[in-house]
Write a protein that binds this DNA or RNA. Structure first.
Lengths: 150, 150
DNA sequence: CCATTTTGTTCAACTGTTGAACTATTAGTA
DNA sequence: TACTAATAGTTCAACAGTTGAACAAAATGG
């Protein structure tokens, strides 16, 4: 009976994803400095990787309201980690990018977070890591598709 | 050079885990009713599965402060979904369990959340699902070990 | 030219979280 | 036994993150 199997997977997935989310967040937070929160670290990492981006992009990417992005970026600008620049081609748009200060802080935080994640990852065989991350990335794409279809 | 590989995995894992966390939460929230938040749904699910548990257990399990659990359970008790009972063998302890009302609501929410997750899961081959969830569960155990070792 | 759309902000209200101070109860020990 | 430790949970102020509605400014497209 295939339905049985699927319900079991769903149940296991829901349980474990919440657990890993909470425990993972707690561990990462323990590796960060007092000044930087978990969400701020990830958001800065995302903007760094993208080079620059807009509020609209961030809101769509992370599935939150634009006003949530404004609130978060306000705090990051206040701390001097993030810069807001008006786009001269389209003056409605505000381009977000890391300041040098922000780059340095994220790089610093990367050091301790990477050490932590490495400690975790080292306990898995290489093939398992590769397969897991690949499925995880595929899941991220599927979630975006499902969200767009709604 | 193996260090190169590990750093790439760490980077990919950090990026994708945040993305899936945010997008997944947004999707699940869309499947829930207005009255129940994402975190409340998962917490009620956990307590239901355990039958009954304490604040201390929840705090340890999810890596949060006990006062955070008090605040969350307060809201759930106010909504009539959760019950607090004093343990007569150890009167410091308060046992948390779902009310009938709570059971019914979680079961109701399960229906729409399961439908959503099924839609996502259906896009993956069975072996991939099974392997992914197994590694995920192993990750949850490793995170607990790492946290305990700290 | 003017209505519509897009981009981002402001605000009030809420959930989730921390950390310190607190109460009540139990356990350990001298 | 009596007193100190530890444990379980709550309270409180302060903060981060979130929503949703109302808003301003700028671009788009008839």
């Amino acid at each position: 009976m295939p339905g049985r199997n699927i319900d079991e997977w769903i149940d296991r997935y829901l349980s474990v994803s919440f657990l890993v989310m909470k425990r993972g967040a707690a561990l990462v937070k323990g590796s960060l400095c007092e000044e930087m929160t978990h969400d701020q670290y990830y958001l800065l990492r995302y903007i760094r990787r993208r080079g620059a981006c807009t509020s609209t992009e961030l809101a769509a990417m992370f599935g939150v309201n634009k006003s949530a992005v404004t609130a978060m970026t306000n705090r990051l600008v206040d701390k001097g980690w993030l810069r807001r620049d008006r786009d001269e081609n389209d003056r409605r748009v505000i381009v977000l990018s890391l300041t040098e200060h922000g780059e340095a802080w994220v790089k610093e935080m990367d050091r301790s977070v990477y050490r932590l994640v490495e400690e975790v990852i080292a306990r898995f065989p290489e093939e398992e890591i590769e397969a897991f991350i690949r499925t995880y990335e595929r899941l991220a794409r599927v979630l975006q598709e499902v969200e767009e279809a709604t």
